[in-house]
Amino acid sequence: MKFKQASVLPGFNLAFGYTIVYLSLIVLLPLSALVIKTSSLSWAQFWDVVSDDRVLASYKLTFGASLLAAGLNLVFGLLVAWVLVRYQFWGKRFIDALVDLPFALPTAVAGIALTTLYAPNGLIGQYLAPLGIQVAFKPLGIVVALTFIGLPFVVRTVQPVLQDLEAELEEAAACLGASRWQTFCKVIFPAAMPALLTGFTLAFARAVGEYGSVIFIAGNIPFESEIVPLLIIGKLEQYDYVGATAIATVMLAISFALILVINTIQWWHSRRHGMRK
């Protein structure tokens, strides 16, 4: 097979060339600096840095909290998308528009605002404190911040799928005697599955690297509420650039793997979709 399949359309060389050059300059070259800096460590040294107990604990926290937040977004994102697509109620347009807010609000402002709300003396925190629930300065606070950050993804990926879902399918299910719940489980949910997975992974990928909002709401206690990006900053404080880049490289590899998973899901979905057509 040739590199490129024949096409009558013009401009491939220009567009492709420009894409590669710009991508290389802005993304690949700087990221390769990271990897090359790290490669000044031997494998043993690299392994020591990235598998230190404290680093492992912060991976666990970062990935655990991100997973939880993405999970919350999976459930509530589907719910919100469902409500926005299927039901009519007052203020719907406003709510629909508001879903994109976390994209636009700077993360530091989001972090400060959430801390103000969820601190034990905050608007929401004061009602949780008597119940023995502390959100801000605990790992739970990290989950709250990451849920905020990842909120738009599931909603925005699932919404169009629910919109396009043909009513006939559900009607057919109903005619065949399926209950509403059965229809949801057997017809609607499978159709929305790839979009849900994509949204989940996007929210997860975004959450793993998040720093600005988390730093205000987390307690930053080692082994308890210390996220990976904070460890990178800690290394830099000791002028340990190589140690910082080593951890950053691990994060980068994980990010890359995550995005690859998303794109594979989408590719797999569009293939299936295409075949059904």
């Binding site: 491939f12 894409t19 690297g209 950053a248 995005i259 794109n263």
Partner: peptide, 28 residues
């Protein structure tokens, strides 16, 4: 608009900055 080899790798690389931690983005 075109089909070529390594397309999904290219898309993945374009997406990459999206999940790179901002701290790392500054550091590079």
């Amino acid at each position: 608009k075109f089909d070529f080899k390594g397309k999904s790798l290219l898309i993945t690389l374009i997406d990459l900055p999206f999940s790179v931690s901002p701290v790392v983005a500054g550091l590079i």
